[in-house]
Write a protein that binds this DNA or RNA. Structure first.
Length: 374
DNA sequence: CGGTTTTGACCTGCGC
DNA sequence: GCGCAGGTCAAAACCG
């Protein structure tokens, strides 16, 4: 269906910012992949969706930066290089979610990334090259997967041949020209002894692959909840085996089955977001599926976001023991020691997926903005 | 027995 | 076109 393809072309874009915020012993940066539409119309909105922040929990993005009621436990000096409102909003969001005061430069610093307004179309094309979602129709169908379903149904003939080629396996019909719409992504690094972090959701492992240039395999998980197509990938850093890189993709269409105290509850959002499972949550800020850590885990986060957004931050005196006004700090503070990762860039060399997602921004000079998500 | 993990095969995209 | 690497499928094995 051509229409579908066009939808993919026009509706997708990625917004990425790379942000490393060293905070005493806490490093945080990551990657987000967000729908173009959301990014353009309401960058923060999309971003918030991604983060699982409900719009109705928060003022419009352009107002965010002026949020006066943020609980400030730390003073953060932020040097930001970005353009347009989106980064600003995101920066505000970040500072807000981390309950830090962010000082923004009056003049945006020269950004290695083009302004978001010009980047978005590019990234949109790039994303358009992503493969078709290979979700099996036999399994759950997320909202995004629905997009590909009709296509799969229509291509019976051609795919029958493919299926016949396979022996007993019922391989899923796929349309060659159909580009897969990639779900919003959220990647972060954790310093942990265990690969599987408890983030409140239930995951089923559906695959494991060896990663090039890494002795550690990458595991693929899918949310076990029916109708939820959220996936996550977990791999261990080859450079530092103690670091686990977790990448979430998609949005939950359900509340967290288990929202233990301190864990992050995530619920579906329309554009790649995760929201608190219960409306009773007083806090609008929820970092998507950040794990409910277990003992002996030490974490550092690579926290990313939209491509056109490039924010570098430095923080002093950050104390993870912040207030309940922010889920993220709450999450951060949860009975864990966070090791500062001296240089995220140095850690981003051979992380396979992580490298795809993060390193380009971290390296900042390369112009693989579009590639990094793909 | 139902759910999860393992694992080899298969598919797809991309670079050469 | 080919090979590689990433991603997914699904049967079998495993586990509580």
């Amino acid at each position: 269906m051509d229409m579908k393809e066009e939808e993919v072309k026009t509706e997708n874009s990625m917004a990425i910012f790379s942000d490393e915020i060293p905070m005493n012993n806490f490093s945080f940066s990551g990657i987000f992949d967000m729908p173009c539409e959301a990014a353009e119309k309401d960058p923060l909105g999309g971003f918030m969706d991604l983060l699982g922040i409900r719009h109705d929990h928060f003022p419009p993005s352009h107002d965010l930066f002026d949020l006066p009621s943020l609980t400030t436990t730390t003073t953060t000096t932020t040097t930001s290089s970005f353009s347009a409102a989106a980064p600003t909003s995101i920066a505000a969001l970040m500072s807000s979610s981390m309950t830090m005061t962010m000082t923004m430069p009056a003049q945006p610093l020269p950004s290695p990334s083009p302004p978001s307004s010009t980047v978005l179309p590019e990234t949109s094309e790039v994303l358009n090259t992503t493969p078709t979602t290979p979700n099996s129709s036999s399994i759950s169908s997320s909202s995004n997967d629905d997009q590909t379903k009709p296509l799969q149904e229509e291509e019976g003939d051609a795919d029958q041949q493919d299926q016949e080629k396979t022996t007993h396996k019922q391989l899923k019909p796929k349309k060659k020209n159909q580009k897969r719409q990639r779900e919003p992504r959220f990647a972060f690094m954790t310093k942990s002894e265990v690969d599987q972090l408890d983030d409140g959701y239930r995951w089923r492992k559906y695959g494991q692959k060896a990663v090039k240039n890494s002795p550690y395999p990458r595991s693929y998980y899918r949310c076990t909840s029916a109708g939820c197509g959220v996936k996550k990938r977990v791999e261990r850093s080859s450079d530092d085996p103690s670091i686990v890189v977790t990448t979430y993709e998609g949005q939950h269409t359900h509340p967290s089955p288990a929202t233990p105290r301190g864990s992050i509850g995530i619920a579906p959002m329309e554009s790649g977001g995760f929201v608190p499972p219960a409306a009773t949550s007083p806090s609008p800020f929820v970092i998507p599926q950040l794990p409910n850590y277990q003992q002996q885990q030490q974490h550092s986060f690579i926290y990313s976001s939209p491509p056109s957004l490039n924010i570098s931050s430095s923080t002093t005196g950050f104390s993870p023991s912040s207030s309940s006004s922010s889920s993220f700090p709450a999450f951060v503070q949860e009975r864990h020691n966070y090791n500062y990762i001296p240089s995220s860039a140095s850690l981003l060399r051979d992380y396979g997926l992580l490298e795809d997602l993060v390193s380009t921004q971290m390296r900042s000079t390369e112009q693989r903005d579009g590639d990094m998500i793909d």
